[in-house]
Deep mutational scan, measured.
Amino acid sequence: MAAAAAAGAGPEMVRGQVFDVGPRYTNLSYIGEGAYGMVCSAYDNVNKVRVAIKKISPFEHQTYCQRTLREIKILLRFRHENIIGINDIIRAPTIEQMKDVYIVQDLMETDLYKLLKTQHLSNDHICYFLYQILRGLKYIHSANVLHRDLKPSNLLLNTTCDLKICDFGLARVADPDHDHTGFLTEYVATRWYRAPEIMLNSKGYTKSIDIWSVGCILAEMLSNRPIFPGKHYLDQLNHILGILGSPSQEDLNCIINLKARNYLLSLPHKNKVPWNRLFPNADSKALDLLDKMLTFNPHKRIEVEQALAHPYLEQYYDPSDEPIAEAPFKFDMELDDLPKEKLKELIFEETARFQPGYRS
């Protein structure tokens, strides 16, 4: 834990890192770190609560700039109880001085990944967590956004079992017609939660990839272990087919990539493993919904509104309290091709509203 900075004593240090967030945020305490930044909790002297502050230093890398800009653009436009918001952003007053960006968010005690390492969940908890994931996802999908990296560590939890989806750095506007060349190379989302079509096709992607990830998360809540822990690309596919069985001819016809289709045709026939054999203690309604989410063919996979209306979630289902976005989200430009200098300018502009004396 960093010592509390005395008023006016300059930035606090946390594990050798400068955290320049005073005077409003003090009493910093280390939480963890990701690929390009550290997260601390801090005391907000204005709202009198502890908050989470993520320090991001992305400006050396085009990919990190892209992810940072995506996350900020999306989260500043989203407003939903099951999606983490941005409360404040701290950065230098000029673009030349801006080396880091500090993002202030609600402090959540833990995440689903940490929880599943230590606790076996009751059916009631599984049901409530799944409902909140789908409630947040309904809003995301209504904005025409794909999260693309749903996994237990991106689901934040607090002691009252509130759940918030975080990390929109890989999110995209849904565009089933656009052929994202190089899709697989830039697709760094965790393999275990990846839909089979991501490994088999490169053309376009749809909201059904997020539903697949939610199915993987439900299976993990039922058993405290990942359902498809593939060691590499082909191993991942083999794990999936080992449980779902061989795809039907109709399902194979959806695979545009001939090499991928021929690979699947070359494999020995596998039978589907019954879900109640894998999860003998699970609620039968939970397994019915799991089956509809972990469907090989993305066109037959359940959609988020149908999933919310499934009998497993009937005690929570309330369409009048499951809000959607006001308007579909649009990125003005494809960020993939922009140089990091341009992305830095866009991050600077996007964060201006939090600067003292800002006038829109």
Rank of each mutant, 00 (worst) to 15 (best):
A4Y: 00
M13D: 10
V14H: 08
F19L: 15
D20Q: 08
N27K: 14
N27S: 09
S29H: 02
Y30I: 03
E33I: 00
E33Y: 01
A35Y: 07
A35T: 15
V39S: 04
C40R: 01
A42M: 03
Y43G: 02
N45I: 15
V46T: 01
K48D: 12
K48C: 12
K48A: 10
K48M: 14
V51E: 06
V51G: 14
K54V: 13
K55Q: 10
I56R: 08
S57M: 10
Y64S: 10
C65A: 06
Q66K: 15
L75F: 02
L76E: 01
L76G: 00
R79V: 08
I83Y: 00
I84P: 02
N87I: 15
P93G: 03
E96N: 02
M98I: 15
K99V: 00
D100A: 12
V101S: 11
Y102D: 12
I103N: 13
D106P: 01
L107M: 13
Y113D: 07
Y113E: 07
L115A: 05
L116C: 08
L116M: 12
L116R: 03
H120A: 08
S122K: 08
N123W: 08
I126V: 13
C127E: 12
C127K: 12
L130W: 01
Y131F: 14
I133Y: 04
L134Y: 06
L134I: 08
G136V: 14
L137R: 06
H141G: 09
H141V: 13
S142D: 03
S142F: 05
V145M: 12
H147Q: 15
L157F: 11
T159V: 13
F168N: 02
G169V: 14
L170S: 02
A171Y: 03
A171T: 14
V173R: 09
D175S: 06
D177A: 15
H178Q: 14
H178G: 08
H178E: 11
G182W: 15
T185P: 15
T190R: 12
R194C: 12
E197L: 10
L200R: 05
N201P: 07
S202M: 10
K207A: 12
I209L: 13
I209A: 07
I211Y: 13
S213V: 04
V214S: 13
C216E: 12
M221D: 09
S223V: 13
S223C: 14
N224I: 15
N224M: 09
R225K: 06
F228N: 01
K231L: 05
H232V: 02
L234F: 12
D235N: 14
G242S: 10
G245Q: 12
N253A: 04
I255F: 14
I256G: 06
N257Q: 11
L258F: 07
K259R: 11
A260C: 00
R261L: 15
N262T: 02
N262S: 08
N262V: 03
N262Q: 09
Y263V: 11
P268L: 11
P268Q: 03
H269I: 07
H269D: 09
K272Y: 05
K272H: 02
V273M: 09
N276P: 06
R277F: 06
N281G: 02
D283C: 01
K285W: 07
L287K: 05
L287R: 04
L290V: 03
L294M: 13
T295D: 05
F296K: 05
N297L: 12
H299C: 11
R301K: 14
E303K: 13
E305D: 15
Q306E: 05
A307M: 04
A309D: 07
P311C: 04
Q315M: 01
Y316K: 07
Y316T: 01
Y316V: 09
Y316N: 15
Y317E: 00
P319R: 09
D321N: 14
E322C: 06
I324P: 00
E326A: 14
K330F: 01
F331W: 00
E334Q: 06
E334N: 11
L335V: 05
L335Y: 11
L335T: 10
L338Q: 15
P339M: 14
K340M: 15
K340C: 05
E341S: 05
E341H: 04
I347P: 04
F348V: 13
E350T: 00
F354P: 02
Q355K: 15
Q355L: 15
P356C: 00
G357A: 08
R359Q: 08
R359P: 11
